[in-house]
Amino acid sequence: MAKDNSANSAENLMQAAEYVEKPESQLKEMWETLRQNKAAVVGLVIIALLALIAVTVWISELIGIQILPYDPNYSDMTKSFIWPNAEHWFGTDQLGRDVFSRIIDGTKISLFVGVTAVAISLSIGVLLGSIAGYRGGKTDAFIMRTMDVMLAIPSILLAIAFMAALGKGLDKAVIAIGLVSIPEYARIVRGSILSVKENDYVQAARVIGNGDSRIIFKHILPNIISLIVVRATLGISSAVLDTAALGFLGLGVQPPFAEWGDMLGRARGFIFTAPYTLIFPGIAITITVLAFNLFGDGLRDALDPKSRIK
């Protein structure tokens, strides 16, 4: 108890020292804090690299230049199961396709899936959460109980159920993954809206004549955007993981296109004879997920003004 008090007064003092003139903008200060977090920087660098790879591969495919050492989808049975060597860095798989090329090519799909799935769940989740939190009462109860039911079912099972209804394919997998994680966003948004809603400035906004939607979009959401951004960053990593899981089960991308989870799934029979066909896609998934998690954690700290002071 005593400690709280001293922390408080020290904090007041520091705030006093900070107010009057603040030379740095909030964004700049956030960036400073983020930069000091080494893990987050590593995460950011990896994400940037992955994005660069994905974009380059995509553009080269569009204009028809092959920059990968081999065509990732070209199979040559005579060259199956070559162990990693100077020619095939990560070896070749059961159909003689170059694993390195396939992994690089798969980056595109993984990132696309991650970002799109999060965009779907984010937009629907934020909307539902805002309505539930702002309206309260029966609307709130109805929306949130539906979300609770969704949360009660294991997400991968739910995604499979969605895919059973929608059919196979990458696009459907993205939608399924997006739908499955709606409740997480709805919950976070609802919770923060409930607390922000009680703030005096929201009441003040109502007194000067703001309508409901303007209050939500202008006065409430901008104040919880940081929470949503952090959650979305972490959400991308779980979407990548979910795609991999669906791919592993054979429900995601259809052959011959390269997707890490799908590669893992198809190679699982050769775990003892050609372990490299599993190891490298596995590492790719791990690195991507880890990068987003590290960056997301760093972002959360950077956006929280309290941890920024410390």
Partner: peptide, 12 residues
């Protein structure tokens, strides 16, 4: 119109 008590909480 209204003027609120806590100037730290009443401005967005």
């Amino acid at each position: 119109q209204m003027i609120f008590q806590d100037p730290y909480a009443s401005l967005n």
